[in-house]
Design a protein around this nucleic acid. Structure first.
Length: 231
DNA sequence: AACCAGGACGTGA
DNA sequence: TCACGTCATGGT
């Protein structure tokens, strides 16, 4: 196989199809196959988000979901939406204790409340312009993965997202070693794929979907259909 | 009842 | 640079 990274993508896509990330609360029902408070997956539609508040929703979603299940994140976003504060100015006007109790389901509510305020002020200061990677990662609470998630899913920039699932799968496939760093893995994917936002968006989402099934509980990769690719 | 979840940051070596 | 502790709630 000349390009294993691409071969894995093709296999995952044929297994699961387009994932329609990042889900948006204002697009409920567009994908009935997923469950939870937000059914706003939009498979095949790579134009979203368009509205300012939708872009903002993706950004606070990336903070909320840090080391947290998406189910919990949905609850927090649902709560915020009920308060009609998925809007940067309105969010900043929210009482801090109210904000913390609203995002409570995601855990780490003290630091995440602060992170959300910081990234919100940064978002407003952009005045509609997309940030560079260096700029967005300088915000407190925005690390490598969150920065790339924001750039890829909120601003549609070709930045590949690496997460713990990605490393887990790549390790099992024997394509990286244990000491690989975030940027090393990111460059590996980006140098193996066409620089295409839709592909980057799908690939990361597909890895998450796949890893939830085969790489959540140990031992990993039991009956993993990817294993037959390299035999 | 341990373990994990769509991580990031601060600290001391 | 690196290894490790901390942050916190909820589902399985």
């Amino acid at each position: 196989m000349s390009n294993k990274i691409k071969a894995i993508y093709d296999r995952l896509y044929s297994l699961y199809g387009p994932q329609g990330w990042w889900p948006l609360i204002n697009h409920e029902g567009s994908n009935p196959t997923k469950t939870g408070a937000i059914n706003g997956y939009h498979p095949g539609d790579y134009n979203l988000p368009i509205e300012r508040n939708d872009i903002y929703e993706v950004i606070i979603g990336t903070i909320l979901t840090q080391n947290t299940s998406w189910l919990s994140t949905e609850k927090a976003l649902y709560n915020l939406n009920q308060l009609n504060v998925i809007n940067p100015e309105k969010l900043l006007g929210l009482d801090d204790d109210v904000l913390k109790s609203t995002i409570r389901p995601v855990g780490f509510m003290n630091q995440k409340a602060k992170y959300i305020r910081d990234v919100t002020e940064f978002f407003i200061s952009l005045a509609g312009k997309a940030p560079t990677r260096k700029e967005i990662i300088s915000v407190n609470g925005v690390g490598n993965e969150t920065a790339d998630s924001i750039l890829l899913y909120a601003y549609k920039k070709p930045e590949f997202v690496i997460d713990t699932y990605t490393k887990r799968v790549m390790l099992r496939m024997g394509l990286v070693d244990e000491k690989i760093r975030y940027m090393g893995m990111k460059k590996l994917f980006e140098s193996s794929l066409p620089e295409d936002v839709a592909i980057y968006q799908e690939y990361h989402a597909l890895i998450v979907e796949h890893a939830k099934r085969y790489y959540s509980k140990k031992p990993y990769a039991v009956n993993d259909p990817l294993l037959e690719l390299f035999k």
